[in-house]
């Protein structure tokens, strides 16, 4: 049995000014000591990247969450860089758990490859720390980068606490390195949760916008595709979130080795090459 309080590192990709981050901080503080270290600026879409252009500065600041003062750290970097700055410079000991979120907008299917929320959790997992990425579905795409105070994160914060508590209390299979949690926009505390797998249906399409020729600025955004639920396998995150409106919990791994017979593959390559 572990003595003393649990140490939890909380981060996100929407930045230190995100009400989704604050909601998670408040809920998690009932489980242990929470250190909040988050990117100084909006970092959506940065995945697990470590761009060489990041400043890497760390600013200690005070945040007031519902009347309580928090000492928090704003880092000039991506979520994955923020995790490393935290582990190497800010926190005196290895935390028991890393939580990333609550994100403005769902992170399902292959979005997990470029989600900064998930990127922070993957970085923690690769340092051997159990990690959770939490996102709340948004209906209005204009809200994704908004950090709008209009969004109510209270239900998702309770789910965050619930799954964090499970991870702190018991051992999970080593292969389940990150729990990727997506909470529907209309969830209540009574909403059921299910273990799911990533949807391989391309749920999000890149959209390129350019006004003039190639010498003009060209921006890549994205939009969710219209989903035909009949084509979605029922055990996927997309089906669970969009069709049954349940909380989706997907165990993720860093081991992307293809699930094929490696010896067979090697002999095929040798025979035909």
């Amino acid at each position: 049995m572990k003595s003393g309080k649990f140490q939890i590192l909380l981060t996100n990709d929407d930045g230190i000014d995100s009400p989704g981050l604050w909601a998670a901080a408040e809920a998690l503080s009932e489980l242990g000591y929470v250190t909040v270290a988050a990117p100084q600026e909006q970092q959506s879409g940065t995945g697990r990247s470590f761009p060489i252009t990041s400043k890497g500065t760390i600013k200690e600041q005070t945040l007031n969450i519902h009347g309580q003062e928090w000492a928090v750290y704003a880092v000039g970097g991506t979520p994955a860089q923020t995790v490393q700055h935290s582990l190497l410079e800010i926190i005196p000991q290895k935390p028991d758990l890393v939580v990333s979120g609550i994100n403005y907008g769902e992170n399902i299917g292959e979005i997990v490859h470029f989600s900064g929320t998930v990127g922070a959790a993957l970085e923690a997992a690769s340092a051997g720390i159990p990690a959770i990425a939490v996102s709340q579905q948004l209906i209005d795409p204009d809200m994704y980068l908004s950090n709008s105070p209009e969004i109510d994160f209270s239900v998702t914060a309770q789910f965050t606490k619930r799954f964090a508590s499970m991870l702190l209390k018991k051992q999970f299979p080593r292969e389940a390195e990150v729990l990727n949690i997506n909470v529907p926009s209309n969830a209540t505390l009574e909403t059921e949760w299910h273990i799911t797998r990533l949807s391989l249906h391309r749920v999000y399409q890149p959209v390129l916008r350019r006004k003039g020729g190639w010498e003009e600025k060209g921006e890549i955004g994205g939009e969710f595709t219209v989903i035909d639920f009949a084509t979605l396998p029922k055990d996927t995150d997309a089906y669970t979130l969009y069709s049954t409106h349940k909380v989706s919990v997907t165990p993720l791994t860093l081991d992307l080795t293809a699930r094929v017979d490696l010896q067979q593959l090697e002999s095929d390559l040798r025979r035909k090459a």
């Binding site: 990533l198 993720l252 293809a258 699930r259």
Partner: peptide
Amino acid sequence: PLNIDMTA
């Protein structure tokens, strides 16, 4: 050989 599916 890699696969893009990160599900554990």
